[in-house]
Structure formats: structure tokens, C-alpha cells
């Protein structure tokens, strides 16, 4: 009788792979009919995202100012920061956007990406200003999402700022003016 050897064993833990399926046939010929094995693979990453040249916009939000860029050469005025003009390539200057604008278009999101699902329903709008050439994406609050109507397009809205800045574009949001 062969001596039974005690091989080293890795200590067991109670975490591990979640198995959804493990059938196995008696006959190996049946392996091709076997159901697939699905395993859970968690994937979490922290990115150090730099706002780079757009950083003053976020500093502005923290100080109650909605900033954007304007081209000193061709005069094109952006509703969302862009450090170099799309039309002439010139480096832009900073300016302060008006507090009040109008809804150019909108939607009510009843679903969303996983990150924003807990916030549904939320309202997205593109804000327009008569004297600005492009738009700005923001959330609209203080209206009932159930009242969504195409009549909302053109509504006058006013920027408000979070007191405790999170340095996200949602530090500014809009309410009916």
C-alpha cells in the first residue's frame, strides 16, 4: 500500500468564482453539447482624469461662474469650452456665459447608464443663448418629468450652482427662470 503523502494545500477562502452552470456528460463525445461555463470577472478602475486646458471651467463652477471660450480672431463663441477655435484654429479666451438661457432641446431619461440609474428620471437639456454660437449640455430640475412636452423647447432657464463643488459639469444645473 502506497504511503499517503500530505501535499501542501492553499488555505481555502469563502470568496471565489460565481458559477452559473457546470454540466458534464458521462461520454466525452457529448462534450460538444455541453452548456457553456459563465464566470464573473469584476473589473474596477480608478482613472486620474485631468481636465487639462478646460480646468478653469470647473474652477469657475466652484466659484459660481459659468465660463466658456470665445475666439479672439474670428469671434466664434462657444457654449461649451474649447480652447482652440474649430473654425480658425486660434487659441480662445475665457468669458462668462449669461446666467439665463433657453432650452434648445431636451429629454427625460427614464433609464440610463448604470452609474446614473439611481438618478432616473432625470432631465437633460441643451441650453442656447442668443449671443452664443453653440450650446451647453446640462440637467434641468424643478419641473415634473411626467409633464414632458415639446412646449418645453424654448423655455427660459436659469443657471444655479452647487454650493459644495464636486468638480463635475453637473456642479451647474438649470431651473425654469
Amino acid at each position: 500500500m502506497a504511503e499517503k503523502k500530505n501535499y501542501y494545500k492553499i488555505p481555502e477562502t469563502d470568496d471565489g468564482t460565481i458559477l452559473f452552470n457546470v454540466p458534464f456528460p458521462e461520454d466525452l463525445k457529448q462534450l460538444k453539447d455541453m452548456a457553456p461555463i459563465l464566470i464573473k470577472q469584476p473589473y474596477h478602475i480608478d482613472y486620474l482624469h485631468s481636465y487639462g486646458q478646460d480646468s478653469p471651467f470647473f474652477a469657475g463652477l466652484a466659484n459660481g461662474k459659468l465660463l466658456s471660450n470665445k475666439c479672439p480672431k474670428c469671434g466664434y463663441t462657444y457654449g461649451t469650452p474649447r480652447m482652440h477655435c474649430m473654425y480658425c484654429g486660434t487659441e480662445c479666451d475665457w468669458f462668462e456665459l449669461p446666467r439665463e438661457g433657453y432650452i434648445h432641446c431636451f429629454t427625460v431619461c427614464h433609464f440610463g447608464s448604470e452609474e446614473f440609474l439611481p438618478e432616473t428620471p432625470f432631465i437633460l437639456i441643451l441650453v442656447e443663448w442668443p449671443e452664443v454660437d453653440t450650446l451647453f449640455l446640462a440637467r434641468l430640475v424643478d419641473v415634473d418629468p411626467a409633464d414632458a412636452s415639446i412646449d418645453w423647447v424654448g423655455m427660459k432657464v436659469r443657471a444655479q450652482f452647487k454650493r459644495l463643488s464636486k468638480f463635475k459639469p453637473t456642479d451647474v444645473y438649470f431651473v425654469p427662470a
Binding site: 481636465y51 440610463g112 437633460l124 418645453w152 423647447v153 453637473t170
Partner: peptide, 23 residues
Amino acid sequence: SFDYPVGGFYSGYYAMMVTRHMK
């Protein structure tokens, strides 16, 4: 930096485009 954190959801983006088309 500017779009995803506000409520990144492509169906929402296209829905904004169509409310403008409707208007």
C-alpha cells in the same frame, strides 16, 4: 469631461436630437 458625467446615455442624446426635430 462635459457629456458623460451629466447623464451619459445615448438614448437620451438621440432623444434630445429628436425633440429638436419635432420642434
